[in-house]
Design a protein around this nucleic acid. Structure first.
Length: 566
RNA sequence: GCACCCGUAGCUCAGUUGGAUAGAGCAUCGGAUUUCUAAUCCGACGGUCAGUGGUUCGAGUCCACUCGGGUGCGCCA
């Protein structure tokens, strides 16, 4: 929960009630610029309009009624009726000391935890992970961590693509040669492409592929065994890559499309019974308002598609998993499909009271501004990208800090390389497409992971050199402007976390952390710590320690590591 | 044809339920270092917020239309 905003909101809400006997939103906001103070209450204009009074008079009245209990140094009325709030540095210091003593930095867990089902990263089986899996893995993971941190019960669902007609052609292709059955994933990836080519060009093979799907879906023992083998190989690879990029997904989170297969017929039957679905051109479909093409629930040949699976999963999550909130992390290209199947699900009554968020994101582009592909037009393998990130980071570490032991440089390179890729991806609003650019990701200047990690390493360096074993619990006093600026920012973490958990926009947390790092750098330049006399030394050391924990907490929530030294 | 997303500084992007003189970074230029890690900091330059009209105390933000870019749309996922 927030520390500053919540108190201000309560105080101004009460003041408005005292002054006008109405409940109005205090319309609290940060000022954005220091000269207007730290926060502002913008309620006076709205209330003045509602009650037909003069805004400045309303602002005066609110100001005279509000009791901030020492929070503010002064309140000023400006412009048409803004009430600017300048926080008191003594009050800030008190609050900062409170959160410094709290393992969760003063951020309370929610009183009534919700069950939040998060669907990510939705990887397809039988193919190596590629660059397209970076964003759902990364964004979904950050969102899961953040929501979990607020105290909600997070249920991760890795809705892998482990079912469907593609497996028919893959199994049929592999069946042609017994040797292919022991293939590794890299080969299966090749088989998949070859099988698809055969499927498109060879009608006899296509028929065999379709027949194989039917046998698989009917539970044919041989087909099932070979299918399981492919899934196992794929899972091994998937978990390895996700682990390499520090994504918190385990096999226990896996609930693939195949899981829902036994429910699909019932889903269709229910939708027909409820009058949501109808027959059209031999298929069973659901028509959704503005769209000219329907959602197909059952194909003319009797088979089911992903729309049916998504509906089955929706129903499963609200009924069996008892979800209070459903979060889906997918490409924005699936927007229409999500509008369609969620509308169908809503009409069927399968949402219950659960909230719903479709977390969409844009495309990663290559240097040419088109979706990122290799020169030959192949998809870029995610594992290779991650390895290259680590290699590039290693070269930077070697150049900057050659005296560190070899294994430590390797560990730093991993944190910086992976962190650089992840932060670059999280740092922008999700919907913007971006060009994959190594130099920008791994730059040590600007709003990048290495800059944040460096700031953290500096906090640790000071603490290390201070000779104090345990981070000091000394009282923080705020004197220098850089100290006050830093303190104000630290105290905003709760507001930011709350906002990100609600809006599901990790880039807001990135911006917060970047500003935190710049403010720490300003403090670092202007305020000597170790060289200062007591009690200033201990106070500043404690300020470093709480800054460090704030940075570390934020980076943890983004799934980005923070080495002690760089 | 139908639908969705986007358009802000030379470049990459922020801009919280509508709030004050639209902010950062990169690049460019100019400064700071016998350092607590310079993987740093300070300053300068840089804007018809694609356009037009509307809503109101107030619009980058909301509404309508236009232009421009991207994407998705019956039996694949």
């Amino acid at each position: 929960m927030s520390i500053i905003q919540k108190q201000l909101r309560t105080a101004f809400g009460a003041a408005i009630r005292d002054a006008y006997s109405i409940d109005a939103d205090p319309l609290l906001a940060t000022t954005g610029t220091d000269k207007f103070g730290d926060y502002q209450c913008n309620a006076a204009m709205a209330i003045a309009k509602q009650l037909k009074l003069r805004p400045r008079d309303v602002a005066e009245k609110i100001k005279s009624c509000v009791d901030l209990a020492g929070m503010a140094e002064k309140l000023e009325i400006a412009g048409p009726g803004f009430i600017n709030i300048h926080l008191s540095s003594a009050w800030l210091a008190t609050k900062l000391n409170q959160i410094a003593a709290d393992p969760r930095l003063g951020i309370e867990k929610t009183a009534n935890p919700q069950r939040v089902v998060i669907d990510y990263p939705g990887i397809n089986v039988a193919k190596e992970m590629h660059i397209g899996h970076l964003r759902p893995s990364n964004i979904g993971d950050a969102i899961a961590r953040i929501i979990e941190f607020t105290g909600e019960t997070v249920i991760r669902q890795n809705h892998i693509g482990d079912w469907g007609t593609a497996f028919g052609m893959l199994l049929a292709y592999m069946q042609e040669d017994a040797g292919k059955n022991d293939a590794a994933l890299a080969q299966i990836d090749q088989f998949y492409k070859a099988a698809k080519q055969r499927f498109d060009s060879d009608p006899a093979f296509a028929d065999e592929a379709r027949a194989t799907v039917v046998r698989l879906q009917a539970g044919g023992a041989d087909e099932l065994a070979r299918w399981r083998k492919i899934v196992d190989i794929s899972r091994h690879h998937m978990l390895e890559v996700l682990h390499l990029m520090s994504v918190q997904i385990t096999q226990a989170d896996e609930r693939g499309e195949s899981f829902y297969n036994p429910m699909l017929a019932d889903v269709v039957a229910q939708l027909r019974a409820k009058g949501v679905a109808e027959e059209s051109e031999g298929a069973i479909v659901v028509w959704v308002k503005p769209f000219e093409t329907p959602l197909i629930i059952q194909k003319r040949d009797g088979g089911f598609g992903y729309g049916t699976t998504d509906l089955a999963a929706l129903r499963f999550r609200t009924t069996e998993l008892k979800a209070d909130r459903l979060v889906y992390v997918t490409d924005n290209r699936q927007r229409q499909h999500f509008l369609q199947f969620t509308d169908a699900g809503r009409r069927a009554g399968w949402f219950g009271n659960a909230g719903y968020d479709h977390v969409m994101f844009g495309t990663i582009l290559g240097p040419d501004g088109k979706p990122f592909k290799t020169k030959s037009g192949e998809s870029v393998k995610l594992k290779e990208v991650l390895i290259e990130a680590i290699d590039r980071a290693r070269a930077i570490v070697d150049a900057k800090n050659p005296e560190l032991p070899d294994d430590q440089r390797s560990a730093i390179a991993r944190s910086v390389g992976i962190g650089g890729v992840k932060y670059f991806d999280l740092n922008k609003d999700r919907l913007t497409d971006y060009v994959f650019d190594w130099d920008s990701m791994l730059a040590t200047e600007g709003n990048t992971a290495p800059y944040l990690q460096y700031a953290y390493a500096r906090t640790q360096s000071i603490i290390r050199k201070s000779g104090v074993e345990v981070p000091p619990s000394a009282q923080i006093t705020l004197g220098a402007p850089e100290e006050i600026t830093l303190a104000k920012h630290i105290l905003r973490l709760g507001d930011v976390v709350e906002s990100v958990a609600k809006e599901l926009k990790p880039h807001v947390l990135c911006t917060y952390l970047y500003e935190l790092a710049t403010r720490f750098s300003g403090f670092f330049e202007a305020c000597p710590v170790i060289k200062s006399e007591e009690p200033l030394r201990s106070s500043r050391l404690a300020l470093c320690a709480v800054t460090a924990r704030t940075l570390a907490t934020g980076l943890d929530l983004l799934g980005i590591e923070h080495p002690e030294q760089m």
